[in-house]
Design a protein around this nucleic acid. Structure first.
Length: 274
DNA sequence: TTCCAGGGCCGCG
DNA sequence: CGCGGCCATGGA
């Protein structure tokens, strides 16, 4: 199938900026696994050419890649100085994606004090072990396990999948969700309230909560502060002074405004390629 | 060998 | 509240 892009979009920058863990580039196609849908997609100028495992069409693709966001207006909003200006120029068309809240939550609990290849491997392992096989042509992947499916996992299972010390965090959160903690419903709350509720979960602190808010709960002012963004912000925006993650987040939301999360993703990607 | 990874929890002052 | 120690594992 084919989708004509109406605003700026870069599939490459969007998928490779680090926000999303389940993608694989093969023979010029990106294979993207989200929830229980496998997508094969590539970009040709202002066109997206794609196929989905369940027949999902343009509406789904637009939703997933936030193609309805007015990116020109957002960029105009956050383009406050030369530092972010450079990042914006380098990664034109980068968009925040709209991930599934449950998948995003578990993924970022796994991300704690971890590196990206290892995070990707752990997520793949739990999907293979507890999810369902999904096929697209001769390519195979596994759906992200539902909370019910992950509810069958033991601590040892999760450790074998490579979660290490994060296994007990994940297990406690899985249990709470299965007891009725509704993540998706937090979309209806204000940013601060949604974040506060998320932080009641095991393995979810400031940073993970901000990632879940930004990538899956429509909170575009969330500004996740990890080690990379912390160093970069201290150097470029805070006069080289050591500053707490909390204060960096507060500064960024105040400085960049309601789309601070977009600013964060451009700066994060930029900071990792210096 | 040592250091680090898209941190969070816990105990302490 | 803010701080330091600790948590497991693989790769550079």
């Amino acid at each position: 199938m084919e989708l004509i892009l109406e605003g700026p979009f870069s599939l490459k920058h969007t998928l490779e900026c680090g926000q999303f863990f389940r993608k694989h580039l093969k023979d010029g196609w990106y294979y993207v696994m989200t929830k229980d849908v496998l997508i094969r997609v590539k970009q040709d100028g202002n066109k997206l050419i794609y196929e989905t495992s369940d027949g999902s069409n343009n509406t789904f693709i637009k939703h997933f890649f936030r193609l309805n966001d007015n990116l020109d207006r957002i960029i105009e909003n956050i383009n406050k100085d030369d530092t972010i200006g450079t990042a914006i120029t380098n990664y034109q068309g980068l968009r925040i994606m709209r991930q599934d809240p449950w998948e995003c939550l578990i993924s970022y609990i796994i991300s704690a004090r971890n590196n990206i290849p290892s995070i990707e491997r752990s997520i793949y392992n739990i999907s293979r072990k507890f999810g369902n096989k999904v096929k697209l042509g001769n390519y195979e992947d596994y759906s992200f396990p539902t909370s019910e499916q992950l509810g069958r996992a033991t601590l040892e299972d999760l450790q074998k999948c490579g979660l290490a010390f994060r296994a007990k965090h994940a297990l406690a959160t899985i249990k709470l969700v299965n007891e009725g903690f509704d993540i998706k419903k937090l979309q209806n709350n204000e940013y601060k309230k949604a974040k506060e509720e998320l932080m009641k979960l095991m393995g979810v602190g400031e940073k993970v909560a901000d990632c879940v808010c930004l990538f899956s709960l429509e909170k575009m002012q969330a500004f996740p502060v990890d080690v990379w963004i912390k160093r970069f912000m201290e150097t470029k925006y805070l006069d080289g002074k050591k500053t707490s993650e909390k204060k960096i987040g507060e500064f960024a939301r105040d400085y960049f405004g309601e789309y601070a999360g977009y600013a964060q993703e451009y700066l994060y990607h930029h900071s990792r390629h210096l």
